[in-house]
Computed example of a mutant assay.
Amino acid sequence: MQPFVYNGLPSRVVFGRGTLSRLSEELAHLGCSRALVLATPQQQQQAQDVLQQLGDKGVGVYANAAMHTPVEITDDAMQVVKELDVDCTIAIGGGSTIGLGKAIALRTGLAQIAIPTTYAGSEMTPILGETRDGEKTTQRTLDVLPETVIYDVDLTLTLPAGMSGTSGINAIAHAVEALYARDGNPVIALMAEEGIAALARSLPVIANDLSNVDARADALYGAWLCGACLGSVGMSLHHKLCHTLGGSFNLPHAETHTIVLPYAVAYNAPAAPQAMMRIQRALGCDDAATGLYDLGRAVGAPSALSELGFGINDVDKATAMATRNPYWNPRDITVDGIARLLSNAQAGLRPQSERGEAL
């Protein structure tokens, strides 16, 4: 066995059905009593319900969280934090809301409780991505890791089919990259394969039966595992591409991850054969890239970046940005290779894992 380093992350996880009822108990565990509830505009009512549940431990709602965590939104939220003398935040929603909670924590040191309602996985990572002047940058620091995560399966039962599928495959992307991360280790590899398998078997069921509680629980379990993987090891090509497309082209987060993942896997396949074997075993397929592509079709997800408004004329600009300061990757990053990858993803061509040299 190769030597490795494993760092466990200091977060508390409460998982089950009806666990939202334990929120006040978890606030007390953190020693907090003036909580600001965060949400997107679409989930404002849900945030108001949480505020009501908190009683005098809740001081307000800020429901302007936005995709890709724009710094101007964070600056606005900071004014509310100061005005209300907040001592912690409670983020209920997906990656946009949880990202805002992280951005506030980075600036204030306030404790966080995250209550995810999608499968994105941001709640389990010490990673913050922020967008300023049309460019998204990321940083990794324990200062943004939520202290407590409450997973309540019941909160996912109303998640629409489309978002269930794309946020689930977004979670799978975290585990996929963990399998060939430079700082990977056997513990994370086990979690990654189990997380991929749990989501791969549950997402098609959910696509046909939104109220299937067993499948919902399996998917949320898989999302937790995949998020923990991303939180423990580094990111590679797939995440660099998605950060570029999201931050600079304003493409929707989960859908972009879903579309790009099979092509990034196809690109990296020659350099990461052991990771490909684990992905194939988890998916129950013979080729990792096509297996991921087919999973997207099984859950009704978009298959081409063109469906999100990314044009063929955008490929050169995106390629230049993604290759300017690339993340570490198991396979060398080339301008021609990334341009071809993005062109294929723009058109939605069926991918096939590479067996030879660079694209």
Rank of each mutant, 00 (worst) to 15 (best):
G129A: 12
L128T: 11
Q139V: 11
Y180I: 01
R216A: 03
A171F: 07
I196M: 10
E194P: 06
L179G: 02
R281M: 09
T131E: 08
A171P: 05
G16Y: 00
K136H: 12
L220S: 07
G129K: 05
F15W: 04
V81Q: 01
D49I: 10
A358P: 11
K317V: 14
S248N: 07
G184R: 13
I312T: 14
N344P: 03
R132H: 13
E193G: 05
A91S: 15
D314K: 04
A39I: 09
M1S: 13
G95W: 07
Q352S: 14
R182V: 09
D133H: 12
I259N: 02
K57C: 10
K82H: 13
R201E: 15
C32H: 04
D209H: 07
E194Q: 14
V299W: 00
M124C: 14
T166W: 00
Q44C: 13
N329K: 00
G95S: 10
L230W: 09
V213N: 01
G222H: 03
D154M: 10
L110V: 09
H29L: 14
T137I: 10
T40A: 10
T323V: 15
S236I: 04
D56E: 15
V176Y: 03
G231S: 05
L283C: 06
K102N: 05
G184K: 07
T137L: 11
L349E: 12
A304T: 02
S122R: 09
K317C: 11
C229R: 07
A228Y: 15
V335A: 12
C88A: 10
T290R: 11
V149A: 03
Q43F: 13
V144L: 05
A77H: 01
A114S: 12
E72D: 15
G337W: 11
P41L: 05
I150C: 03
L308A: 02
L23F: 06
L349V: 14
P116T: 06
G18A: 09
R22S: 14
V176T: 04
L128K: 09
A282R: 02
E357R: 13
G234H: 05
V299A: 00
L245G: 03
Q274W: 11
Y6I: 01
A175C: 06
R201C: 09
L359S: 12
E72S: 14
H243L: 01
A289D: 00
S202F: 02
R22K: 14
D49A: 12
T319K: 01
R201G: 04
T138F: 07
R331L: 07
F4M: 01
A301L: 03
L23A: 04
Y267N: 02
G184Q: 08
N208F: 08
G55S: 05
A197F: 04
D183N: 15
I92N: 00
W328H: 06
S164Q: 00
D75C: 05
S303E: 12
V14E: 08
H174I: 10
L292Q: 01
D143K: 14
A178S: 13
V265Y: 02
G234R: 07
A271C: 11
M321Q: 15
A105V: 04
